[in-house]
Simulated scan of single mutants.
Amino acid sequence: MKLVVFDLDTALCQTSAMDGLAMASAIKDVAKCRIEPETVRELHDFASIWYRATQRFPSARDLVDLQERFGFHLRRQFLIRPSVIPANYGLIEQINLLQHQKNTIVGLVSATSAAVMLLKAHAIGLVCQTLPLATGEDADSLPGILLTMQARVRRSFGFNFESCDLIAGLAWRGAATAAQMNHYLPVDYLASGSVQIRDGQFTRSSKLFSFADY
């Protein structure tokens, strides 16, 4: 069995100007201070974003409120700018194909909230309601999110996987090591591990995968 996990924010729907604008508005709502939208380049660490804006460490309540307001303002951004949502459609296609592969479970993680994850997934046309999910609401660190995903898959699907792959940006590399997962950058995964359909059959284009899975 194989577990293949994709990070929504660094692999599928990359952090964009809309995220920065939404975060700036959320910081203003919750912390009553300002952060420049263009400084928000990644969403993997809400605590660091908070600290940069306020110069103080956030409480658990602060982070919960920040997540909630970020989701509210991001929804507004998607309504205002529906045509500029960035998406890696090559990887989205891979997810759709992998879901039909024998002995493989596809998971989705995000350092944001479940509400934001579902909002982004819907905006880029990714059907994820049947996928195991883990977010920043489940753990307060990236390794914790990955370990939550692994535990959730073991409980829900009842198997121990032989390997775990994580497709995510560089910010997740240390977390992947801590969770004993193989880390691949999105561009590398597409280049050397893409799934294709030929004559109605699934084929793999690299040694990242085994034909014995079929």
Rank of each mutant, 00 (worst) to 15 (best):
L3V: 08
L3R: 01
V5P: 06
F6Q: 02
D7K: 04
T10E: 07
A11H: 00
L12R: 01
Q14P: 13
T15E: 01
A17C: 03
A17F: 03
D19C: 11
G20D: 06
A24R: 01
K28R: 14
K28D: 09
A31I: 08
K32T: 10
C33S: 08
I35N: 03
I35E: 04
P37E: 08
P37V: 13
P37H: 10
V40G: 06
R41W: 04
R41V: 15
L43H: 02
S48M: 11
S48L: 14
I49Y: 05
Y51K: 10
Y51N: 08
Y51G: 00
A53G: 08
A53E: 07
R56Y: 04
P58N: 05
A60H: 07
V64I: 15
L66I: 13
Q67M: 14
R76G: 09
Q77T: 05
Q77S: 06
Q77G: 06
F78C: 10
F78Y: 12
F78S: 08
L79I: 10
I80D: 09
I85F: 04
I85Y: 03
P86V: 04
N88W: 02
I92D: 05
E93S: 13
I95H: 02
N96A: 11
L97Q: 10
L97P: 06
L97S: 08
L98C: 07
H100R: 14
Q101P: 09
N103R: 11
V106N: 03
G107W: 01
M117K: 06
L118T: 09
L119S: 15
A121R: 05
G125M: 01
L126W: 01
L131D: 09
L133N: 02
T135Y: 02
E137D: 15
D138H: 15
A139E: 06
A139D: 05
A139R: 03
P143N: 08
P143S: 09
P143D: 00
P143W: 08
G144I: 02
I145D: 04
I145L: 04
L146H: 06
L146S: 07
L147G: 00
L147F: 09
T148A: 13
V153S: 01
R154D: 00
R155M: 09
F157Q: 11
F157K: 12
G158D: 02
G158R: 00
F159P: 06
N160I: 13
F161M: 14
F161W: 14
D165G: 09
D165S: 10
L166T: 05
G169V: 04
R173Y: 06
G174N: 13
A175V: 09
T177C: 07
Q180G: 00
N182Y: 05
N182F: 03
Y184D: 02
P186G: 05
G193S: 11
V195C: 10
I197D: 00
R198D: 10
R198M: 13
D199Q: 12
D199M: 07
F202L: 15
F202Q: 09
T203L: 13
T203W: 11
T203Y: 13
K207I: 13
F209A: 10
F209P: 01
S210M: 07
A212V: 14
A212Q: 14
